[in-house]
Simulated scan of single mutants.
Amino acid sequence: MARFTVTHQVEAPATAVWSALVDWRRHGDWAPLTRVRVTTPRPDGVGAQFVARTGIGRLAFDDPMTVELWQPPGGDAPGDAPGRCEVVKSGRVVLGRAGFSVLPLAGGRCRVDWDEDVTVTPHRITRFAGPALSLTGRLGFGATLRAMAKDVERQAR
């Protein structure tokens, strides 16, 4: 398995960051070469499903996901309950789990922790290249979280 966690502090309230992160279609605004479409009538809550398509032309792949845990943050003040969302990835290329937490901090800020535990097919790729995949994931999702933060911070002003 390729495992990684990325943490980023955002200069915006936890509830605003949560709203941006669970607006699945917006992920395509932050992640290069990615488009996201929701495949269930409701985009929110446990059971919501969506597909991220990443790549160009024949080099693109679908990453279907189903929400298994949905706990919005309890508010924006320190001590309020953090938000947590977890999805199961069930594609032909990427399998496993992903999730994020949004922890309210003082001063209208929050911290996002994004974690993934995935296998890439064929499985031998993950077995031999797990550390490289983890590093690539950390770098890619770090850039995605920074882009999301800029977007949400701009809107929060």
Score class of each variant (00 low, 15 high):
130 G>F: 05
96 G>C: 10
137 G>P: 09
129 A>M: 12
90 S>P: 00
77 A>S: 15
10 V>E: 06
8 H>V: 03
64 P>T: 09
30 W>A: 09
21 L>R: 07
97 R>F: 12
37 R>Y: 02
99 G>H: 06
12 A>C: 03
91 G>A: 07
37 R>W: 04
44 D>T: 13
86 E>A: 08
132 A>F: 13
55 G>P: 01
54 T>S: 10
42 R>Q: 15
12 A>S: 10
8 H>F: 01
13 P>G: 11
5 T>V: 15
6 V>Y: 08
117 D>A: 15
17 V>Q: 04
146 R>N: 03
157 R>I: 03
133 L>P: 02
14 A>C: 04
131 P>N: 11
22 V>M: 07
87 V>I: 14
46 V>P: 08
11 E>Q: 14
128 F>W: 15
38 V>Q: 05
117 D>S: 14
27 H>N: 10
136 T>R: 14
131 P>V: 08
152 V>F: 06
3 R>H: 15
25 R>L: 03
132 A>T: 01
87 V>C: 10
10 V>T: 06
136 T>K: 13
84 R>E: 13
1 M>R: 12
135 L>V: 11
55 G>Q: 02
75 G>W: 03
18 W>G: 00
93 V>F: 12
55 G>I: 01
153 E>R: 07
47 G>K: 05
74 G>L: 09
30 W>V: 00
57 G>C: 00
51 V>F: 05
131 P>R: 11
138 R>N: 09
82 P>T: 05
79 G>E: 07
141 F>S: 02
9 Q>Y: 00
100 F>K: 04
18 W>D: 02
48 A>V: 06
68 E>K: 04
70 W>C: 08
2 A>Y: 10
99 G>F: 08
5 T>G: 07
1 M>W: 05
125 I>D: 01
